[in-house]
Amino acid sequence: MTPYCNGRPATVDDLAGALTNYGHFTSLQVRGGAVQGLDLHLQRLQQGTAELFGSALDPLQVRAWMHGALRVEDVVDASLRVTVFSRQFDFRRPLQPVAVDVLVAVAPPVDLPAISRRLRTVRYQRELPHVKHVGTFALFQHRREALQAGVDDALFVGDDGHISEGTTWNIAFASGGTLVWPQARALRGTHERLLQAGWGGDQQVRPVALADLAGFDAAIACNAAGIWPIARVDGVALGNSEALCANARRVLAGTPWQPLSS
């Protein structure tokens, strides 16, 4: 993974500043120099910067830095992680607006296969769930514990008993021909929004309780790296998930790609 900070190769000082556990990011896939939902990723970065740092972020500049990093690496297909932090941030004066730094990391492209996965539910609520912040320790630990328990990943349930999201992905359920997105405090992912916009069929956004799982026959998970079927949640089998996943992948295949170059 090659990092670039504010449009130039990152130095040791840059990376040391990024180690402060305060910031936010977005992860995206680039194919042929273009991104699906690029505007959504840039909006996420702008909103996170305003909320965490009280500063404005220039989306055109960030876009140019992303494109520039790909050009230097001489690649058109890649995974990008764009992290916004600030070497000027002082936790003693957290309300002071500060200029931010943008770290663009370039890595090989990823396309997660559509392999069915089994989930277990855990009681957990991310802090500031609407922000894709760098506090990811609990997410990775819950996934690790799920694997130790013999399943593939963890699905979060709030104290109110309502399903919210997975460790690093969103989830949607289906019953008959209706797609249901859980209405709960969660990070609203770019692929979730792209699927909602392009679905075309009947869909709902409503609270989904654990007790509702038996009423569904399919589920899919999604993030910027792909879409995959959910075979089982706890003791509930979801036998039609592969067909639902195939349909979702067709929807996403019809979503336009936005070029990083201006």
Results as ranks from 00 to 15, higher is better:
residue 76 V to A: 13
residue 49 T to N: 02
residue 38 L to A: 04
residue 240 N to A: 15
residue 130 H to Y: 11
residue 194 L to R: 13
residue 84 V to F: 01
residue 27 S to F: 07
residue 157 V to N: 02
residue 126 R to I: 02
residue 52 L to C: 07
residue 55 S to Y: 07
residue 91 F to R: 15
residue 185 R to T: 00
residue 150 G to Q: 08
residue 118 R to E: 15
residue 189 G to D: 01
residue 44 R to F: 00
residue 95 L to N: 15
residue 115 I to Q: 13
residue 31 R to G: 03
residue 216 F to S: 02
residue 251 V to D: 07
residue 34 A to N: 12
residue 201 G to C: 06
residue 120 R to H: 09
residue 223 N to F: 05
residue 156 F to S: 01
residue 40 L to A: 11
residue 87 R to F: 02
residue 101 D to S: 14
residue 208 V to Y: 03
residue 117 R to G: 04
residue 22 Y to S: 03
residue 233 V to C: 09
residue 178 T to F: 05
residue 33 G to F: 03
residue 242 E to H: 11
residue 53 F to R: 03
residue 21 N to T: 10
residue 159 D to N: 03
residue 56 A to G: 14
residue 186 A to P: 00
residue 200 G to H: 05
residue 87 R to G: 09
residue 113 P to I: 05
residue 23 G to Q: 09
residue 209 A to C: 05
residue 181 W to P: 01
residue 240 N to Q: 15
residue 188 R to T: 07
residue 9 P to T: 08
residue 200 G to N: 09
residue 96 Q to R: 15
residue 169 W to I: 04
residue 168 T to C: 12
residue 217 D to N: 13
residue 26 T to C: 13
residue 21 N to Y: 09
residue 148 Q to W: 07
residue 12 V to N: 01
residue 135 G to Y: 05
residue 99 A to V: 13
residue 183 Q to M: 13
residue 61 Q to I: 07
residue 2 T to S: 05
residue 135 G to F: 07
residue 44 R to S: 10
residue 89 F to Q: 04
residue 130 H to K: 12
residue 148 Q to T: 12
residue 55 S to F: 07
residue 133 H to G: 08
residue 213 L to A: 11
residue 192 E to C: 08
residue 86 S to D: 10
residue 213 L to N: 06
residue 45 L to M: 02
residue 167 T to R: 04
residue 202 D to Y: 00
residue 67 H to T: 03
residue 177 G to E: 14
residue 22 Y to W: 15
residue 196 Q to G: 12
residue 189 G to I: 01
residue 227 I to K: 10
residue 131 V to T: 06
residue 83 T to A: 12
residue 131 V to H: 04
residue 64 A to F: 02
residue 110 V to K: 14
residue 103 L to M: 14
residue 17 G to W: 09
residue 98 V to C: 06
residue 109 P to D: 09
residue 147 L to Q: 14
residue 226 G to V: 06
residue 168 T to V: 14
residue 51 E to C: 02
residue 253 A to H: 10
residue 153 D to E: 13
residue 220 I to E: 04
residue 217 D to V: 07
residue 220 I to D: 02
residue 28 L to K: 08
residue 77 D to W: 09
residue 260 L to V: 10
residue 123 R to W: 03
residue 7 G to R: 07
residue 260 L to M: 11
residue 22 Y to T: 08
residue 110 V to E: 14
residue 234 D to V: 06
residue 163 I to E: 01
residue 230 I to V: 15
residue 10 A to W: 08
residue 120 R to V: 13
